[in-house]
Simulated scan of single mutants.
Amino acid sequence: MTLDEIKNALEQGGYAINSEKRAGNDLGWQLRLTNGGIVNVFDTGNFNVQGKCQPEIKEALGVVGSGSSNAPSAPGSQKSNNGYTKVFVVYGHDETAKNHLEAMLRRWGLEPLILDQLPSEGQTLIEKLETYTAEVNFAVVLATPDDEGHRAGHDDEKAFRARQNVVLEMGMLLSVLGRSRVAIVLKQQSNMERPSDIQGLIYIPYKDDLQKEAAPTLAKEMSTQGYHIDVAKL
């Protein structure tokens, strides 16, 4: 569908467009709706739906089986014969843990998208994250004990925490992708706070060896979202 065809379908379905902007030089357009939904329209003629009210918006756009993710995918997240290939990665100050995670994903035949390694094209951090999440179907948040904190006046409650940017980006990814498509890999769980108490989040704890302790669960979660991972590579 073209941009105009999608805009017309949304209008006929009773959905008002709040903003319309170019999503990168070669991606297409991002339409933000007043009800909180997002429609990414790609130059290839494909589109996908994110944000709120996804089943209803997909139905208005003529997607069969609107209760599931049947909309054509973004160019970067298109399925090959083996499934999706790109995955968004968020991390803090633990470079070693980040390198281990990135290497593991590449061994699985996936392409990690790491925010600070992607071109900004004059975008703010939030705009940049919004643009590139249109290319993926899953995100991995690496929460490591980089900071310490406690309630004011309660020094005895001091605990390790993930970096604030990690928590912020995690919240944005949960909003855009949904809880079932964001995994939080939590290092040294016994020594740190969980970055959120929202029910239903996917937490994958590990102590020392990310590959050995977290890989099987992470691979299982990603497989349910369309990623094909060779178990021999775990």
Rank of each mutant, 00 (worst) to 15 (best):
Arg107His: 12
Lys58Thr: 08
Asp208Phe: 04
Lys52Cys: 08
Thr96Lys: 12
Asp94Glu: 13
Pro55Arg: 09
Ile229Pro: 06
Gln188Glu: 13
Asp230Asn: 14
Leu186Arg: 04
Leu3Met: 04
Phe138Ser: 02
Ala16Glu: 12
Gln211Asn: 10
Gln12Phe: 07
Leu61Val: 07
Leu101Gln: 07
Ile114Gly: 10
Arg181Gly: 07
Asn18Ile: 08
Arg179Ala: 11
Asn25Val: 14
Gly28Asp: 05
Leu186Ile: 00
Ala159Gly: 07
Leu201Gly: 05
Val167His: 07
Thr44Pro: 01
Asp26Glu: 15
Val231Asp: 02
Leu142Val: 14
Gly200Trp: 04
Lys21Pro: 02
Phe42Leu: 07
Gly36Val: 09
Lys220Arg: 10
Arg151His: 13
Lys158Cys: 07
Thr96Ala: 13
Thr224Lys: 15
Arg106Lys: 15
Trp29Phe: 15
Ile114Pro: 07
Gly178Gln: 07
Lys58Gly: 04
Leu33Lys: 08
Val176His: 12
Asn8Pro: 00
Ala214Val: 05
Gly67Asp: 13
Lys21Met: 12
Leu61Ile: 12
Leu174Ser: 03
Ala215Ser: 10
Ala134Pro: 03
Gly200Phe: 06
Leu177Arg: 01
Ile6Asp: 05
Lys212Glu: 11
Gly14Glu: 01
Arg179Ile: 05
Thr2Gln: 15
Asp26Gln: 14
Gly67Phe: 13
His154Cys: 13
Gly14Val: 02
Ala215Gly: 05
Asp26Thr: 15
Asp147Ala: 06
Phe88His: 09
Met1Ala: 15
Asn48Ala: 13
Arg161Pro: 09
Thr144Trp: 11
Gln164Met: 08
Leu105Arg: 06
Asn165Lys: 09
Gln189Ile: 00
Lys52Thr: 11
Ser190Leu: 02
Ala152Trp: 09
Glu193Asn: 03
His100Gly: 03
Asp26Leu: 15
Tyr203Ala: 02
Gly45Ile: 14
Leu129Ile: 15
Lys158Val: 03
Ile229Phe: 01
Leu186Tyr: 09
Met222Cys: 00
Gly122Phe: 08
Gly122Trp: 08
Val39Leu: 06
Lys21Ser: 14
Phe47Arg: 11
Asp26His: 14
Ala159Trp: 00
Asn46Gln: 10
Glu11Phe: 08
Leu174Asp: 03
Thr96Val: 13
Gly149Thr: 04
Met170Gly: 05
Gly226Asn: 03
Arg161Tyr: 12
Met192His: 04
Ala183Trp: 08
Leu61Glu: 09
Phe47Gln: 10
Val41Gln: 00
Lys79Leu: 11
Ala23Gln: 04
Ile38Glu: 07
Asn70Ser: 11
Trp108Ser: 08
Phe160Arg: 12
Val63Gly: 04
Ala9Trp: 00
Glu20Met: 12
Asn82Lys: 10
